[in-house]
Amino acid sequence: MGQIEESARKMVFVTVGTTLFDALVRAVDTNEVKQELFRRGYTHLLIQMGKGSYTPTKSEGEDGSLAVDYFTFSSSIADHLRSASLVISHAGSGSIFETLRLGKPLIVVVNEDLMDNHQSELAEELAERKHLYCAHPQTLHQTISDMNLDSLLPYPAGDATPVARLINRFLGFPED
């Protein structure tokens, strides 16, 4: 019996990394986002809230809704990423590439409060290449509603050339 229950578990992992990104935590804590995730077959929402002061609402999920839990920091989010069916992340390159390397579907939410936001350029470029979805806190619900995970393309592991080109472009170096 436990085997069936475990295989039916579909977890959404939300990470803000080491940053403060209450806008993302607030967005995933809205009824609209939680209901949309549940409608799409997800059963659990685990939120890594970092330095944020906004505390999401915990839920056991026994009333036919999404089970919600949260924590501030973990020595390694790799286990959470591995067990996730969907990752919703801040636009930090470490979180983005670790998730893509694991082949997990990813929605990157851009923190508009950051000045000179090169992270959003990286996320938008990877979204254009169909490796992930890119959203803003206020558009997250719509992105989840519209996403088609089958249309995402795997990120080519082991080839750092596309990343190096992106970084060089951001730094203003000429293209090869």
Rank of each mutant, 00 (worst) to 15 (best):
T19Y: 01
K130P: 02
V87M: 02
F13S: 13
T57K: 15
L45N: 07
G64Y: 03
L106V: 04
V87N: 01
Y133P: 06
G158Q: 10
G92F: 08
R169T: 12
D176T: 13
P105R: 07
D69N: 11
T30Y: 08
R82K: 13
F13M: 10
T161F: 10
T143G: 03
Q142I: 10
G41S: 06
L45T: 10
T57V: 13
A91H: 06
L171N: 07
L106P: 03
S76W: 08
K34H: 09
D116M: 09
L37P: 15
F13N: 08
T139G: 05
Q48D: 05
F97Y: 15
A91D: 02
G50P: 13
S74M: 14
V110S: 01
S75A: 12
D69P: 01
H44E: 09
T143V: 12
D63R: 12
L152K: 01
N117S: 06
L24G: 02
P105M: 09
V110A: 03
G92E: 00
R82I: 09
S93W: 15
L126A: 02
L86Q: 02
V25A: 05
K130L: 06
P174N: 11
V163Q: 07
E112D: 15
V33M: 05
D159A: 08
V25L: 03
M49I: 15
L126G: 00
P174A: 13
A23K: 12
G92Y: 08
T30N: 06
F73A: 11
L149S: 00
M11N: 09
E32V: 14
E128A: 12
E175M: 03
D29F: 02
S145P: 00
E124K: 15
L102M: 15
N117F: 03
L81H: 04
A157R: 12
C134R: 05
F170H: 11
N117I: 08
G64N: 06
I167M: 06
H136W: 09
K51T: 06
L37T: 09
L153A: 14
V68E: 11
F170Y: 05
S85M: 02
S83Q: 15
K58S: 11
G92Q: 06
D22L: 03
T99A: 03
V110G: 01
S145M: 04
G52A: 12
L102T: 07
R9E: 05
T19K: 05
F38A: 14
T43F: 01
K10S: 03
L102Y: 07
G52S: 14
Y54G: 02
G52E: 08
T72H: 13
F97L: 15
V14M: 03
R9M: 13
E6A: 07
L149E: 07
L86F: 05
V16F: 01
K130Q: 14
E128P: 00
S7D: 14
H118F: 10
P154D: 11
M11Y: 00
S74T: 15
R40Y: 05
E125K: 10
V14Y: 00
N117C: 05
N111D: 07
G158L: 11
T57N: 14
N31M: 12
D113W: 14
S151N: 10
G41D: 10
F173L: 14
Y70N: 09
M1W: 06
S145E: 06
L122V: 15
R169H: 14
L140R: 00
Y155V: 00
M11S: 11
V25H: 03
L126M: 11
